[in-house]
């Protein structure tokens, strides 16, 4: 079973100071000085893929793990890590274009890769990135490929060469389904999926394997209908009042007297519903 995990690296925006949020004329914010990090949902996808590979011998389903990113050289470190974790094939599609808000373009690249370069049985993608947050790419890929797509996936098990047991989060709980490949699975909030860490020995032995590098010039990007026209910084602020006091007891007393007492008394006077 060929499994392709499509992942991206993102700058850690939490490390930006207020005065770093400067939007330039190209509608970019300079994050070049921030160390890139794996998009968290993609990290889950990569770890889930590795777990499937762990299980392949016991269920007698051979698994080939592949990983692909559309990025510049900033992804080099993570690609080496994936090699160290013994992904069979690690691919970077070299891109310097601004694809932050172009899920259709990304989807078209991924589709062409699967159809023309390396056939796959399963595509795993994180549900969205912390930059674009559009949660569209996996749906568009599935549509372009004509494959089944399941979203909010939290767990996957191997059944046989053509089937997976997929657990996904739905409104009122979890749904567990037996799925036939090929399929696109979008990974949601899956617990316990920090990606494992390769040992030094594995990094020495496997980390230097070549990364397959392709160029976006070899792909037809779909025409986007949406054009980015403006970026605005959203300030997440909450009003707050600092209660000062010499001890926790004093602060709690102040909190009660000044803010809570009235609502407690009001609640006592109101009839219960």
């Amino acid at each position: 079973m060929n499994i392709l995990v499509c992942f991206t690296t993102v700058p850690d925006l939490e490390l930006l100071n207020d005065d770093d949020w400067v939007i330039d004329k190209n509608l970019q914010i300079d994050t070049s000085f921030l160390k890139p990090t794996l998009n968290s949902y993609d990290e889950s996808a990569l770890e889930i893929a590795l777990t499937l590979s762990d299980a392949s011998e016991s269920v007698k389903v051979p698994v080939e793990l592949n990983a692909l990113t559309i990025a510049g050289t900033g992804a080099t470190t993570i690609l080496k890590t994936l090699n160290s974790l013994r992904f069979n094939r690690v691919v970077r599609i070299d891109s310097h274009a601004d694809l932050r808000f172009r899920p259709a373009a990304i989807a078209s690249i991924l589709t062409q890769y699967v159809l023309e370069h390396a056939p796959q049985d399963v595509l795993l993608l994180g549900k969205q990135t912390s930059i674009g947050e559009n949660a569209k790419t996996h749906l568009l890929v599935a549509e372009m490929l004509g494959w089944l797509c399941i979203t909010q996936v939290v767990g996957i098990e191997l059944v046989d060469m053509k089937h997976l047991m997929v657990t996904s989060q739905v409104d009122d709980g979890q749904l567990r389904q037996r799925i036939q490949t090929p399929c696109v699975l979008s990974i949601g909030d899956s617990p316990n999926t920090f990606m494992r860490v390769p040992t030094l020995k594995d990094r020495m032995r496997y980390g230097k394997r070549p990364v397959e590098i392709l160029s976006t010039s070899g792909f037809q990007l779909s025409d986007e209908t949406e054009e980015l026209i403006e970026l605005e910084v959203i300030r997440h602020e909450r009003a707050g009042i600092l209660i000062e006091g010499r001890s926790p007891e004093e602060k709690a007393r102040k909190l009660y007297e000044a803010y809570l007492k009235r609502s407690v008394l009001l609640k006592e006077r109101l009839p219960e519903h």
Partner: peptide, 8 residues
């Protein structure tokens, strides 16, 4: 651990 983005 900290500087791979400019000092690999």
């Amino acid at each position: 651990y900290y500087f791979s983005h400019f000092a690999e």
